[in-house]
Design a protein around this nucleic acid. Structure first.
Lengths: 332, 332
DNA sequence: CTGTTAGCGCTTTCAC
DNA sequence: GTGAAAGCGCTAACAG
């Protein structure tokens, strides 16, 4: 590989001149610049990114750390991050935290290879995150709350979302409402559940633990949980699935048992995944402003990088999207 | 930020000793090692990844360059790449080529920041790719064919796929088969189209240019193309959509015009996106082995990195997944 | 406008 | 078993 030195030699100028010329410094005359550029091209010279980053102690890139690169779930969020990152002339790299401490994500976080990072990866421990925060580069974490000077948060108000979902069911005349939950460890799930309970309470509906079913956010899990409910002949009049994937699984279970949604039972999901619109019946659900979360997260990073102050905590609202999986019932 | 120097000072040893100790060299005594580790922890020392990469001229990471990070389309492929990358103890970063020459993807490609790269980004020009190939690091490109010593290819046999799709329609008694195409510039589209033409030819079905509709791989495009076909009262008995997204758009158009699929018209798609299973009727389509493509691409990189020789070209087969959007018709 | 030079933080050879 | 020192490729302060 040709280095800057080779280019300098070939162009018959000093190393620094090459550097200046290639970085478009105004100090270099057009003639010299041209000479340098020709030499560079002739040698197929490409600057070594590391050397340059090392010297400048700045990478011009921010990282998006995801627990799994391949989840379609992240699409909108990534889009949001990407849009504002490139609008700011920065580079964005995405990496996965699969592999825990060994993972690429953790490596980028700890080895200071980026100017800032957005974290949405539950399997990166709090300890590591807190540790990385010591570096001083801004960190936005989206999936939990961490008290630290250089850690910032953008979250969507899942309590409110859970509340609305439940309230919507109640407003449609439902009093028997089950909750099929995600993993107990999931912060999101806990919040949605809180909203559910709060709504029941506000509307003076007695909570029944038999309609509080544990599951795991997967389609398969939703299917099993629903089958269980059906087998127990314990069916409520409505179900709030903690996410759409599980609701889709539930739909499948109902179909197999010839139980009609929404005629026999109403269901509501959470997330508004692409599929929701296409299943039958189309799923009423709570939509999270994912694009906005991503965009705001990236925006925060740039504010901080620019030395501005900002709040440590932002909360975005959800929106209910009404489709066909909930029916109005008269008093039961 | 604490540097290796600070650690050395605090531990009362030489810089090199710190380096050895932290990299688990056997030359260092347990006592010294412990001393160094404590100093490192006390100072919250983290090695600077650039400096180390620069020195070793090796990054231990490979890049996946995508035209758009947020496409759900890539899920399986990414999974494949990710699996074999981490199995090999390498890091994987994904970056987008949005922004062309300015993009992160191009930067990583040209600035030698990775040991190898997998490219699936039509907007990275051949020139840049060829140029990057001069670096000597292995490149696997998935979306076109480039003749170069250090460029390797994994492709799925789209001609065969297009042929099968068309043949399937023919075997179901269809003779009037339209093709709704993707962008003319798309290599994939051209291949599928070739397969379509070849099948018509083999089965002695006359090609009719009126049933050769240009579109763009989007749902909206498929919708419009289908509307057009309907408006012209020019409906064939079957349509081969060059991808599922367009087929989904087409389904919508048919629904609005009360044309029944598959009773009035049969359709087949391409890709087997997640949605295909859920639209109504479920879409018969051609499935590409995306996971395998990703896994093989990554595998090739490691073979090459390991100094092994390998073919420059691999071709994987498609598979037809039969659902409900094609009906058998008797001779027309 | 151009050249000299001192590092960025780390790895690694060589000498002790 | 440990340390001194060279240098990876580049940038930028400084001197001319």
């Amino acid at each position: 590989m040709a280095t800057i030195k080779d280019v300098a030699k070939r162009a018959g100028v000093a190393i620094s001149t090459v550097s200046y010329a290639l970085n478009n410094s105004p100090r270099i005359s057009a003639a010299t610049k041209k000479k340098v550029e020709e030499a560079a091209k002739a040698l197929n010279y490409k600057k070594n990114g590391f050397a340059s980053d090392l010297k400048r102690t700045k990478t011009n890139t921010i990282a998006l750390l995801l627990s799994d690169l391949s989840g379609p779930f992240y699409s909108d969020l990534i889009q949001g991050v990407q849009d504002v990152t490139s609008a700011n002339g920065y580079d964005l790299i995405a990496c996965s935290s699969i592999g825990g401490v060994q993972s690429t994500a953790v490596k980028f976080l700890t080895e200071k290879r980026v100017d800032g990072a957005i974290i949405l990866a539950h399997n990166i421990s709090d300890a590591i995150t807190l540790d990385a925060a010591q570096h001083g580069s801004p960190l936005v974490v989206l999936d939990r709350y961490l008290e630290n000077e250089s850690i910032y948060h953008v979250e969507v108000d899942n309590i409110q979302g859970g509340y609305h979902a439940t309230e919507y069911l109640i407003n449609h005349g439902h009093k028997q409402i089950a909750y099929i939950s995600g993993p107990a460890a999931s912060h999101d799930n806990v919040q949605r559940y809180k909203g559910y309970r709060k709504a029941l309470e506000n509307y003076k509906i007695t909570y029944q633990s038999k309609w509080d079913i544990a599951s795991d956010f997967t389609r398969e899990g939703g299917y099993r949980a629903t089958k269980l409910l059906i087998a127990q002949r314990n069916l409520p009049r409505a179900i709030f699935y903690a996410n759409d994937e599980m609701a889709v699984g539930g739909l499948q279970a109902f179909k197999e048992n010839k139980i009609s949604v929404p005629d026999d039972i109403s269901i509501i999901g959470y997330d508004d995944i692409q599929l929701s619109e296409y299943v039958s019946p189309p799923l009423t659900t709570i939509k999270q402003p994912k694009y906005e979360v991503g965009a705001l997260a990236a925006h925060l990073i740039f504010q901080l990088l620019g030395g501005e102050k900002t709040d440590h905590h932002y909360k975005l609202s959800t929106e209910l999207v009404e489709r066909k999986s909930v029916r109005h019932v008269s008093d039961e």
